[in-house]
Amino acid sequence: MSEKDIKFIDLNTTLSAVGKAVFATFYYAFKDISISDDVLAYKIYTENPTSKSDSQNFRIPRARRIFQMGQQLDVLRIIVHSKRVDSNARDLAKNILGRETLQNKYNQEICEEQVFIQELNQDLIYNAQDSKPAPKYDNTPKRPKELILSTSRKYPRDRKKSENALRIADYLCEANKEHFLFRRKCSNLNYTEPHHLI
């Protein structure tokens, strides 16, 4: 038996203790750690007709452990493909899985963009000290290489072109030189971002 199979046996055992329909129904409540266990237990007891106990001590720690281990999307997939779960709970799990997957992709794109900007800023700070003139480059509009994702489009950015665009613009807004700008933390350069206008 592979490690992956063992993981899912344990996950199924944990999920069985929580209840598949309960996990889908109270997904966001389990996820929100600002909701105390007592408040959550009362919520589950009053809103779930199959609850037999107002304690819920067996469900809440197991459900929150799933989130701590980062296995919530695996659990949602299990629920979606489980034929023994009520169709409403399966549909709910499918909708949540779609939203969470989309949010994860968005978060990943934001992180990649922040890393790009941070690295570009570092390069600008160090290269500005060299006081070399900005290199000339062909700035005629070109169709970018397109990377198509399932939910959105993302265009790869070229750090050298971005740096050159900022240097040529003298770290000022190209649309309006009077726009208010603020200084970078580590240098006297204005904080601006390159935008490729076509």
Results as ranks from 00 to 15, higher is better:
153 R>F: 03
111 C>Y: 12
34 S>M: 09
115 V>T: 14
134 A>W: 08
148 I>L: 13
80 V>G: 04
167 R>W: 09
158 D>M: 03
93 A>E: 01
38 D>Q: 15
178 E>H: 09
97 L>S: 01
58 F>D: 00
177 K>W: 01
173 C>Y: 11
144 P>N: 05
69 M>D: 10
36 S>L: 09
72 Q>P: 02
179 H>V: 06
183 R>P: 01
21 A>P: 06
102 L>V: 15
163 E>D: 13
177 K>H: 07
131 S>K: 09
70 G>I: 04
64 R>W: 07
48 N>K: 05
153 R>P: 00
13 T>L: 05
164 N>P: 00
18 V>S: 03
155 Y>Q: 06
113 E>L: 12
117 I>N: 07
125 I>Y: 08
23 F>T: 08
157 R>M: 08
51 S>D: 00
71 Q>N: 04
189 L>W: 02
162 S>V: 01
101 T>Y: 11
171 Y>G: 02
94 K>V: 00
142 K>W: 06
153 R>H: 00
143 R>W: 00
87 S>A: 04
32 D>H: 04
5 D>E: 00
160 K>F: 08
137 Y>R: 06
100 E>M: 13
75 V>M: 05
169 A>Y: 04
74 D>R: 12
143 R>D: 07
86 D>P: 01
144 P>R: 07
171 Y>I: 04
19 G>K: 06
1 M>Y: 06
164 N>D: 12
131 S>E: 12
189 L>C: 02
66 I>Y: 11
48 N>P: 01
140 T>I: 00
193 E>Y: 14
103 Q>R: 14
160 K>G: 10
111 C>V: 09
72 Q>C: 01
99 R>V: 14
78 I>Y: 04
60 I>D: 08
48 N>A: 10
170 D>Q: 14
17 A>F: 01
40 L>V: 04
74 D>K: 10
167 R>G: 06
154 K>F: 03
174 E>Y: 04
6 I>P: 02
42 Y>F: 13
5 D>C: 03
66 I>N: 04
54 D>Y: 13
120 L>P: 12
39 V>S: 09
119 E>Q: 13
166 L>N: 08
98 G>P: 00
137 Y>S: 03
52 K>S: 09
33 I>F: 02
36 S>C: 07
92 L>W: 05
